[in-house]
């Protein structure tokens, strides 16, 4: 797991999830940049509320997708960490 289960990811001020009505789909909008989300990316981001920790998010996704927690923790942990590197998410340790 690239994130600790007790870590709490959240969206910093100025970043929001928005529907892209022009092309369909959802984007994460940050100042001067945007991230287009695929279905799995949207599933991860939509579970980030600044309160739930990473372990709870992974458990929820595992139940929804019927996939092993280890696989989901690895993939979503990398995804969240990559967004945190770009300052589009914050990780509260």
């Amino acid at each position: 797991m690239s994130l600790a289960a007790a870590s709490v990811p959240r969206m910093p001020r100025g970043v929001r999830l928005q529907e892209d009505r022009v092309r369909g789909g959802w984007v994460l909008l940050a100042p001067e940049r945007a991230i287009a989300l695929d279905a799995v990316g949207l599933a991860i981001i939509s579970r980030i509320d600044g309160a739930r920790d990473f372990g709870a998010i992974v458990a929820d996704l595992s139940e929804t997708y019927g996939a092993p927690e280890a696989e989901i923790a690895r993939d979503s942990g990398e995804f969240i960490a990559a967004l945190a590197e770009r300052r589009i998410l914050e990780i509260m340790v």
């Binding site: 909008l29 945007a34 991230i35 996704l61 997708y65 995804f79």
Partner: peptide
């Protein structure tokens, strides 16, 4: 819907 590795795609705004 199956789990697939999420793709991070930056788009111009």
């Amino acid at each position: 819907m199956a789990w697939t590795k999420p793709i991070l795609r930056e788009v111009a705004c």
